[in-house]
């Protein structure tokens, strides 16, 4: 497939915005419409666009998509294990009461895990389809 100069140049501008947008959706999710799942989907879309622009790309921030899936699952599990470590029930929300950063708690960490997993999942599937040989 031929590379389009317009497409890749435009993406250089749009892609950082999309990363920020995805993260913003995740961050506002606790109080406003949004959340880790949608954020992860948007981030995954952004990854797909980047992959179309750059054929050879296989890693994101040094990690392959499958690793992102595993990382997301690990983060989600870890966040739910914080409460038992503190002597509370499994998965009970633990919040840090700190006025400067109001959204700091294990449910947010859990949502981050969802975000990472969905991101990795979307990229995994797309990358597999994208890098397949043409005549299969």
């Amino acid at each position: 497939m031929k590379k389009s100069l317009i497409y890749s140049t435009a993406l250089k501008l749009i892609s950082p915005l999309l990363w920020a947008f995805a993260f913003w959706i995740y961050w506002r999710g606790h109080n406003l419409p949004g959340g880790g799942f949608i954020g992860g989907l948007v981030a995954g879309l952004n990854g797909c666009l980047l992959l179309i622009a750059n054929h050879q790309r296989t890693t994101w921030a040094g990690l392959r998509p499958s690793t992102w899936v595993g990382l997301g699952l690990t983060v989600a599990l870890m966040s739910s294990l914080i409460a038992p470590v503190l002597g509370l029930d499994f998965m009970k929300g633990v919040w840090v009461q700190w006025p400067l950063l109001p959204l700091l708690g294990t449910p947010m960490l859990f949502d981050l895990g969802v975000f990472l997993l969905v991101f990795g999942m979307v990229l995994q599937v797309f990358q597999l389809l994208w890098t397949q040989k043409e005549n299969s």
């Binding site: 999710g29 606790h30 109080n31 406003l32 419409p33 949004g34 959340g35 880790g36 799942f37 997301g72 699952l73 989600a76 599990l77 739910s80 499994f90 998965m91 929300g93 919040w95 959204l103 708690g105 449910p107 947010m108 859990f110 949502d111 895990g113 969802v114 997993l117 969905v118």
Partner: peptide, 23 residues
């Protein structure tokens, strides 16, 4: 749940275990 978005709080807090299974 310290959150105003009820859907999100259900997903990550009240029904967090379900979400865990789903992911």
């Amino acid at each position: 749940g310290h959150g105003a978005n009820v859907v999100n709080v259900i997903l990550v807090d009240f029904r967090g275990l379900d979400t865990m299974g789903e992911i």
